[in-house]
């Protein structure tokens, strides 16, 4: 599905990612863990093709096609989607209007057990933390993606909402064979979505990758991310 090889990325002239390699196969869930400012979001934005995220080396290949130089919207058309951690407000534009424009086929708004008023509100204006996350996941699903990046899906959510969101991810995405890259700091979402592989990113490099996400998470909880520098697992899963 997605193959990243030796990817290096600069943002505003500063090197952020260094020779990152990552392969996600069809239907797999990968978790990307790491402390703040380790480069996780940069990887997400580089995969999406945000202009400020300059690729200085390496390649991104999606379903056999090199997308390194494709504009954002063309990557979306190939099936890549991102659920943002920080969503901008867009005054005057109702969520329903955006969904109407981007959904193909038209999305059934009743299928998400959220307050229907949400769809008639301006995008992210005055949304609670939970509403923002539901809005994100509804937008992402409306794109009918085959690969989704969730950037801190679980940030700021209570347990109840986290369970509901995880359930939507399972029912609407995973059950349809969608691959997922889950960027997170927390263990709860890992327990709900049970990643096939977990990676740890430190200082712009993936220093550890393992199918045993529980062991990685326990290590982080017990010793902190510093321990990952001495990781016993290979730094990339080949």
């Amino acid at each position: 599905m997605l193959k990243i090889e030796n990817l290096s990325v600069k943002v505003h002239g500063k090197d952020i990612l260094r020779r990152v390699s990552l392969e996600i196969k069809d239907g797999e869930v990968h978790a990307l863990l790491g402390p703040n400012a380790s480069g996780k979001c940069t990887l997400a934005y580089a995969i999406m093709g945000f202009p400020e995220y300059k690729i200085t080396d390496g390649t991104i290949c999606f379903r056999g096609k090199y997308i390194t130089n494709l504009p954002i919207e063309d990557r979306v058309k190939l099936g890549i989607a991102l659920a943002f951690q920080h969503q901008p407000t867009i005054k005057g534009v109702k969520l329903s209007k955006l969904l109407e424009k981007i959904s193909s086929p038209a999305i059934n708004m009743k299928g998400f057990s959220v307050n229907p008023d949400l769809f008639e509100r301006e995008i992210n204006v005055g949304f609670s933390g939970g509403e923002r996350k539901f809005s994100e996941i509804i937008q992402v699903i409306s794109l009918s993606p085959i690969f989704v990046i969730f950037d801190e899906l679980d940030a700021g959510l209570d347990i109840g909402n986290l369970e509901r969101l995880a359930s939507i991810v399972k029912d609407k995405l995973l059950s349809n064979g969608v691959s997922i890259l889950l960027i997170t700091h927390r263990g709860n979402i890992l327990r709900y979505l049970k990643p096939d592989v977990a990676h740890v990113m430190l200082d712009g490099e993936i220093v550890c990758s393992s199918e045993n996400w529980r062991k990685i998470w326990k290590t982080i909880v017990r010793f902190g991310y510093g321990k990952c520098k001495e990781c016993e697992f290979p730094s990339s899963r080949q």
């Binding site: 999406m48 945000f50 954002i72 919207e73 969503q87 867009i90 955006l98 424009k101 981007i102």
Partner: peptide, 18 residues
């Protein structure tokens, strides 16, 4: 703009919507 382009809209479509 990046947010709306991440929903598949071109830059012009995003500007029109805004």
């Amino acid at each position: 703009l990046n947010y709306l382009r991440s929903r598949g809209l071109t830059e012009d479509e995003a500007i029109d919507l805004i």
